[in-house]
Design a binder for these strands. Structure first.
Lengths: 171, 171
DNA sequence: TTTCGATCGTGCGTATACATACGAATTTTG
DNA sequence: CAAAATTCGTATGTATACGCACGATCGAAA
């Protein structure tokens, strides 16, 4: 009767993510930024001067994808790449001043989306949902030989105040 | 203290989806099929002879994206497009015999992934997670002017036996 | 019935996601 | 210290995801 189809969970996950992605793209469109570029900037806002590799890992994304994104963001002057101080293969990535300002705007512009998402859930359950999602991601990554991918979700990734919110921190 | 960051939910959703997508791509690689093509085939397996438009809606995807996918799947002989019986603008899409057989293989090949996902959750909670994800998707879609997108998630979309599982139905 | 707006599929352009291969530089090994 | 294995970023190719504009057709309203 209620034998849930096995594919319900993957399909629901897909539908939810695509909906989020579309909404985000729409919200950022007038700023000339995409949803994924926002994720990248958010990652940099949290930990600046990362290696492209580190950046890709924290974004759960691919190095070559990240490179393409960086090229575009660099053109807009939102991001800056410098040679790594000790490793001359690597390049460090950082938000420019303009990039930080832009990110603050984007953060505000996307506030509605975050609020809506949370409002769709019983207030108690948002943490549970987050936990489930992380467990799912960790489980799926654990089997796949993506190196150290499972570390990234569960750990706060060092640093004390890793708050992403650039507005409440504001001066 | 435990003031959850507002971006945790979106980020966790993204990480979980990308992990699922990667795992699926890896599982289907040896069959020459992608994760998204599997979704398309699954949608057809459930309701054949759909319009490209209907297909796109049920997949929570874009018509022009679906078209590109259909072209590729047609080359592989897995899918077949015919002119619509009454509407000469439209084309109906259906799995070929070969497509159905391939889909059965893919279903088996991806069984592990579905099982792993469920195993990552407390057994009682999988339905809850699915419900949350659907609510999130519906909420996000409801605001965005994507026509009738919110209908797609909650409804079984007609038909009696809409089971996706092609194996237990077999013969 | 004629016209006109809505809808279907197509084609084109941009951005992502990822694999793979490559050169350059670093680290490890013997 | 020198050779080998690894790592970093880059470049290329394929498949999505989506917006937009286009021609063809349908359907409704005049």
């Amino acid at each position: 009767m209620f034998a849930a189809e096995k594919s319900e969970l993957p399909m629901a996950l897909r539908a939810a993510y695509l909906a989020l992605h579309r909404r985000s793209d729409a919200a950022f469109e007038k700023y000339g930024i995409t949803a994924d570029q926002f994720v990248l900037m958010a990652t940099l806002a949290r930990g600046n001067a990362l290696t492209q590799r580190e950046l890709a890992q924290r974004m759960t994304s691919d190095p070559s994808t990240v490179r393409a994104m960086l090229v575009l963001l660099e053109k807009q002057g939102l991001v800056q790449r410098d040679v790594h101080p000790t490793d001359s293969r690597a390049r460090t990535v950082a938000l420019t001043v303009s990039g930080r300002r832009k990110f603050r705007q984007l953060w505000v512009a996307s506030e509605t989306i975050r609020t809506e998402m949370l409002s769709a859930l019983p207030p108690t359950e948002s943490q549970a949902l987050i936990g489930f999602l992380r467990r799912v991601a960790n489980t799926l990554n654990a089997m796949h030989p993506t190196p150290s991918a499972s570390d990234l979700i569960s750990e706060p990734t060092a640093s004390l105040n890793t708050s992403l919110d650039p507005v409440s921190d504001r001066t």
